[in-house]
Design a binder for these strands. Structure first.
Length: 563
RNA sequence: GCCCCCGUAGCUCAGUGGACAGAGCGGCUGCCUUCUAAGCAGCGGGCCGGAGGUUCGAAUCCUCCCGGGGGCGCCA
């Protein structure tokens, strides 16, 4: 890889010039050739100016001399610029090497080893089984699945897990509400008042008939909801390896065991009739109640037991994805696990800001209890899973997302999913056309890749070169939207190439080189879309201009008043 | 009062210390006899919320302030 080559060259130059290596490592990053900065730029001269005690430009000049004496591969020239940048200008051969790398690696291109062999348990979604998944929850579905893919792309063994809270007071409330509907009554004020319980009660009666008890109703209901959630997740293409029952923790004695163990370790005390755990000893803002004065455990206890169970099942690192509305619980759980002797910071908790739904420029309230709920299934009734997924993956999870139902459900150009899928369809179309004309790719080593000199071609190869880093960073930062950003940039580069560079043309040699370039693009784009859980179609339906006009003009938009 | 996240173009958002800050959408203008125009190109559009500080260098790090969202239960 060229980065390592340039880095080695810089290291040798530092040594030859008797300069120290920066402690933080030699800074080297892709540059922008269009700005005249060359292909790769290093700020090493600025990094070491203090240690050397000379001006960065002077240092850079000295390094330049050494670099020229022993240059990296594909070296054209190196320039000193600005305050002391070292800009490496390379011949396009380095990019032709990238093309070969991509093709040789195939679907392993972009894979890394930073998590090789790590056994990671990733828990996400875990919505209470008291109603269907709401639309905003789709964010955790898409983000969680993509993070799982990213961790696996870095070599981890990843287990997708869903924690089913089939015990506790929320479920009791749900059971009471369902039972009320079953008996034709209104649910309690503080119960679940959504319409879906009316339908569910009807199904309950159809399946179990009369004489169902409240306990049976709750039992049947939570099972039916879990089944529904599982089907919705199936529709969007997400599969969990384990559906873990909270009740099993109670019944198996693990909940009681956690309390006993914390007690044995000396972190439990009594106060005001309740039993508390001293989480403040491990960084929590205050201690927490373990057992209420009525003798029942708080939610925290099964939560601790659950994470302990994950470790017991052989997972060495735990990651949970939670909505930001639970951020106050992070420290308590981590502190309790630390009290039990597990590593600090376990589980790692990824907090995501919540989703706001908007329609016709107005916020749509999301409340499972109130009843005006928009479910993930509702979204999937209107758009295909690719649109839903990519929309959730457009931005970082540190920002609250506004999910505009009008935009998402319209087949308009505001939907980036079509833009990126179209790039893939165009690649497939080129392949089809080539086959039609009887043009086949010759073995790569017989093809003259040096014919690829067009700015569009080089831009595309630079994007491919950047892909492995984009994936590695996305995995490290648990930030799948970085892959989305890469895909959008890449699609832009491809569309430009497609427009300006005809692949199948009169020049056989150039056609060969471009067919291989298209193949490398297919590999990269298909892989990236795969990480995001978005399909890579070979064809796109032709968009009817009339439909597009309709889609672009949703009701309720501010616009010019009619005359 | 305390804790977490955010504030970047008209709108939605990228940009985890580097060179004149980017994209999409919207607006205006061009480009289809040739691999699907769900495309490409151009034009316009910015005190990066504000003030200090650290640094050779800050949208990025620190402090304070302002604004928005979320959370501070013997609910989950």
């Amino acid at each position: 890889m060229i980065r390592e080559e340039i880095e080695a060259c810089l290291r040798a130059a530092l040594k030859a010039a008797r300069f120290p290596e920066p402690a933080a490592g030699i800074a080297l990053a892709p540059a922008d050739p269009e700005k005249g900065h060359g292909e790769w730029a290093s700020t090493v001269a600025m990094q070491i100016q203090k240690a050397v005690g000379r001006r960065p430009r002077e240092i850079a000049e000295a390094l330049k001399t050494e670099i020229e004496a022993a240059p990296p591969p594909h070296f054209d020239r190196v320039e000193v610029a600005g305050p002391g940048f070292l800009n490496f200008f390379l011949t396009p051969g380095w990019l032709h090497d990238v093309l070969v790398d991509v093709v040789v690696a195939g679907d392993r291109y972009g894979r890394g080893e930073s998590l090789a062999g790590r056994r990671i348990n990733l828990e996400f979604v875990s919505a209470n089984p008291t109603g269907p998944l709401h639309a905003g929850g789709g964010r955790w579905v898409a983000v969680g699945d993509a993070i799982a893919n990213l961790l696996a792309a870095q070599g981890a063994v990843v287990h997708r897990e869903y924690y089913v809270n089939d015990a506790g007071s929320q479920l009791d409330s749900f059971g009471r509400s369902l039972f009320a509907r079953y008996e034709g009554r209104e649910p309690p004020e503080d119960g679940y008042r959504g319409e879906y319980l009316v339908e569910m009660a009807a199904r309950l009666r159809a399946e179990l008939g009369d004489g169902v008890t409240e306990t049976e109703a709750q039992e049947w209901g939570s099972r039916a909801v879990v089944e529904q959630i599982r089907e919705d997740l199936e529709r969007i293409g997400v599969h969990f390896d384990t559906w873990f029952s909270e009740r099993a923790l109670h019944e198996g004695g693990e909940v009681a065991e956690v309390i006993r163990e914390l007690d044995e370790r000396g972190y439990v005390y009594e106060q005001d009739g309740a039993r508390w755990v001293r989480t403040s000893a491990f960084g929590d803002q205050r201690d927490r109640v373990l057992v209420k004065s009525d003798g029942s455990p708080t939610y925290l206890v099964p939560d601790i037991a659950y994470h302990r169970d994950k470790f017991a099942r052989g997972w060495e690192h735990l990651i949970d994805i939670w909505g930001a509305d639970h951020h106050g619980q992070v420290k308590s759980l981590q502190a309790a696990l630390e009290a039990l002797g597990y590593a600090t910071g376990e589980p790692e908790i990824i907090l995501g800001q919540l989703v706001k739904l908007e329609r016709g420029g107005e916020l749509v309230r999301l409340s499972r209890r109130a009843g005006d709920i928009i479910t993930l299934a509702d979204i999937l009734d209107e758009v295909d899973p690719d649109v839903a997924r990519l929309t959730f993956l457009l931005q970082g999870i540190d920002t609250a997302q506004t999910f505009d139902l009008d935009v998402v459900t319209s087949q308009s150009m505001e939907n980036p999913v079509y833009y990126v899928q179209y790039a893939h369809a165009r690649i497939a179309s080129i392949a089809r056309k080539a086959a039609e004309r009887g043009v086949t790719r010759r073995p790569l080593e017989e093809v003259d890749l040096s014919l690829l000199q067009h700015p569009r071609e080089l831009e595309l190869l630079r994007a491919l070169a950047a892909y492995p880093d984009a994936v590695a960073e996305a995995a490290e930062l648990r930030a799948p939207h970085r892959v989305t950003t890469w895909v959008r940039d890449f699609a832009r580069a491809f569309h430009g190439f497609y427009r300006d560079c005809r692949v199948i043309g009169d020049d056989d040699e150039l056609t060969q080189a471009r067919l291989w370039l298209a193949e490398a693009c297919r590999i990269g784009l298909a892989d990236a879309l795969g990480l995001l859980g978005v399909s890579a179609p070979d064809e796109m339906a032709r968009l009817d201009p009339d439909d597009a006009d309709d889609a672009d003009d949703p009701d309720g938009n501010d616009g010019a008043q009619p005359a």
